[in-house]
Design a binder for these strands. Sequence first.
DNA 1: AACTCGGGGCT
DNA 2: AGCCCAGAGTT
Length: 360
Amino acid sequence: MHRNDVTFPARLLSWYDRVRRDLPWRVPAGRSGAPHPYHVLVSELMLQQTQVAIVVPYFHRFLARFPTLADLAAADEQDVLRLWQGLGYYSRARNLHRAAKRVVAEHGGHVPAGMEQLLDLPGVGRYTAGAVASIAFGVQAPILDGNVTRVLCRLDGITDDPRDREVQTRLWTRAEEILPPIRVGDFNSALMELGATVCTPRSPKCLLCPVATACVAQARGIQEDIPPPKKAKPTPLERRVVLCVARGDHWLIEQRPATGRWAGMWQFVTRPEPAGADPVPPPVPVGPATRIGRVEHQLTHRRYTFDVTCCRSTDDSPAAIAGPHAWVTLEGLKDYPLPKPHVKVASLLRTRALEQAPPS
DNA sequence: AACTCGGGGCT
DNA sequence: AGCCCAGAGTT
């Protein structure tokens, strides 16, 4: 794209006004004004590394439960995690919760408009600060996410790997110098919308692109080769044993540590697969265990298999169990944030309960 | 600069 | 079966 192409923002904004998606954190089509800063903050945290279509139902549920930033700040972290269950990257939920508390304590309950104050909030980096500042407050701040990175690389015909720091620096500069004097929030949103719907990773729809005439990659026919593919790393397999312990119609669950994967969330008793033939020592005295199935779970950098067994506690009032734990019914699990694989384990238990006690 | 952190959609 | 997604925090 040429440096002094003054028609670029106009063409992009005109396209955006015509085809933009009506998303719940945006001002409805046809109405003017900026969206609510709290709504923008929540949506931007949810959207980090997550596609729009996944976020929409979570956003509705979250706003229904926490209508204002003050509601969120006053909530229990476990409730916030429960609303986030299934969305992944749970540190985002904890950071958003902490950010809300900080906004109440330090900014009178109003999301700050300045980049410096936004960057000081947990979970808010350069992208998110720029998005909130520009979209909610009209501040002249650039953004650079996965979509904008791809759009700018193709517009400028940059064939280098955009993950390199040097390229990143160039792209941030570029994202800043193309900002128009007005409607910066819509302009930034339009750049991302273009990347998400037209300038897609594979099979970009250049015939529908409002700025195709400004695109170096399109002119050279190399848009499919930008950005260069990433070299995939092998994903190691982790084996786990899940011991579902029942006492009456209650099941034993334990809370995960406050750091690491699925931090602070709850699970059925889970241990690494024993190296030898020795079974996993149960946390309470139990009767014979029955294997009820296997749950497989794929993450970005890891694969899991959970071998699920089921047994009964043989002690009516078992002695102290190490670490935070609870006995809950299958219905009561809804009050606890569970990692996805343990939601699958719960489904196994429900299926099995139905098979054992068919309706008469 | 490299790792960690979830889960799902799309090709 | 890969690759990516409105990235941020830690090491």
